[in-house]
Design a protein around this nucleic acid. Sequence first.
DNA 1: ATGAAAGCGCTAACAG
DNA 2: CTGTTAGCGCTTTCAT
Lengths: 345, 345
Amino acid sequence: MVRKAVTSGDVARHANVSQSAVSRAFTAGASVAPATRARILESADTLGYRPNALARAMISGRSRLIALVSPNFDNYFYAPATRILSRKLQERGYSNLLFVAEPDDTDEIVQRIMQYRVEGIVMEAATLSSNQADECANTGVPVVLFNRYNATLQASSVVSDNQEGGRLVADFLVNGGHKRIAFIAGDEKTSTSRDRETGFTTELEKHGVTLAARAVGHFTSQGAAEATRQLFGGDGKLPDAVFVASDHMAVTVMDVLRDELGLSVPDQISVVGHDDSEPAALAAYNLTTVTQSIEELAVATVDTLLERIDSDSVTPKSVVVPVKLNVRGSAKLPVRLSPACGLRQ
Amino acid sequence: MVRKAVTSGDVARHANVSQSAVSRAFTAGASVAPATRARILESADTLGYRPNALARAMISGRSRLIALVSPNFDNYFYAPATRILSRKLQERGYSNLLFVAEPDDTDEIVQRIMQYRVEGIVMEAATLSSNQADECANTGVPVVLFNRYNATLQASSVVSDNQEGGRLVADFLVNGGHKRIAFIAGDEKTSTSRDRETGFTTELEKHGVTLAARAVGHFTSQGAAEATRQLFGGDGKLPDAVFVASDHMAVTVMDVLRDELGLSVPDQISVVGHDDSEPAALAAYNLTTVTQSIEELAVATVDTLLERIDSDSVTPKSVVVPVKLNVRGSAKLPVRLSPACGLRQ
DNA sequence: ATGAAAGCGCTAACAG
DNA sequence: CTGTTAGCGCTTTCAT
């Protein structure tokens, strides 16, 4: 039942012009007499003509297609990120080919991406093998890594200032008078988790504090629950604060602390997250966390990508977006010691 | 710096065969001698050849492209839905063009969709105007509405059994001994919200119970907060139970009830949601809710769409996926009155 | 089993 | 400003 699509030739015949005139009528800034264009557009309208983007892409060499590669897991950060990235690209005249990637099928995905002759690639998470990166680089398709970076890759990257995030949390917790401070990592293979940790521990050391305990939560709820039990399930001297590498994990950490281990937050344990994703703002968690603007990350990503597409430049660019601490109620506030207290003065 | 892409002609020259031989080597089931194919694939590999999907689509009339139209708002249900739909389509050999739609730009999106000659469309939410529906129908591109239906449209639809969901909740609340039962709707224009409400109130009436109060939350957190204040902020006789049309709203409802109005859940108010989305399972909410399987919805959607693509049939099909109640702790449990109690026996 | 040739729908010179 | 012409890279008859 697929009706044969209307072509520019059909419109040309109907409007009594050449086929190329029709093409021009649909090209912004082409030299067509207004009257002719009007007649053509009318014919096109009555016939229900839509230019064939595939044919256009073939001849012009510009597909106006961007591949968006997103990781296949539930995460309060990536969901809005994908949405906003897609939206921004759309607004700039590009359409998105969405690929939801498992770590082990990036290879097949790269194949498909290349087959559709995309003009650029946004990689939200899946780690490209150097092989795959080469493949993209060789064909000259610009790649921007969103929320990740990889020094060995010929790819641009846009990340939050994750080290600064960790630093801010370290200062905040130390000033809050915490003595035994712990960290729950995400996925140790990711730059995101590593940078947050580095910034965090480095700043702690500056204050003369060493990390009291550490566990890995793999950026998943289940992993976070286990990490929490590991750190707080014993009956020795418990940490009095924990920095969790993502909000997605942090809410589960709070659940386990309160409902399973009967500890109170922040009275007994202060919890700080990272991302400021949607559940962090829920009253039941009211999570103190590091805010990273998905909007800013997305804008920077799209700008970086389109710039590289337009300029044909190959030099990768790295953008770091600033973060700030969003103080809510899940961690003790820094005690501002007045001189009268006599302490530290 | 965009290196000229390798074409089948290049490969043909390198492998000393005709260009059509190369084409056949990349077509499953084409008649090529195994030896020839091997030589061709080797040449292709050394040259870094990838068939041009655009050219292939043009000549064969099959783009292997599906448009996925997703609403532009934060929602714990649509995020995984988009991911799973995309993944399923990918597994079936299709690539997805993702369009994130605002209600007012569906028109432009339909244009773009048609230009890329997609073979099918999955609409996750945005309400197609009848105009737009016609446009798709006329060109014979099958449309499947995911989680929505529209009787006037020439489109298939896949939805949960929303009425049944409402019914289950009504039974559960009545059996739990609740006397003043309220409802918080989502967006009244959506079939989803309307069906849940219809099923709910109809079943209540069967039990001789009439809805005590009702408000509209528009499927947003803010809307849900306002609806809750409206229903529970007064000092008259408060409802003792509320059915909220989505989990996304229900968690905020619980927040407002507990943290703002100082009411306890479920002791003073029972709360039941719908969807069983991720936050419902968090210990801080432990929400009793109606489970709808995104997986099943996605599979049914993809099956319906591909079936229509393959068969060229035009008759729309409607699929309803069953739901069930997931009893957690946010609502009082039905009291099973033993005969000894003497009540109602 | 393979090659030659036609052509999908369009854009991009090039004339006029 | 407009028409003519030549392909973009591929699949698909049609011969051989």
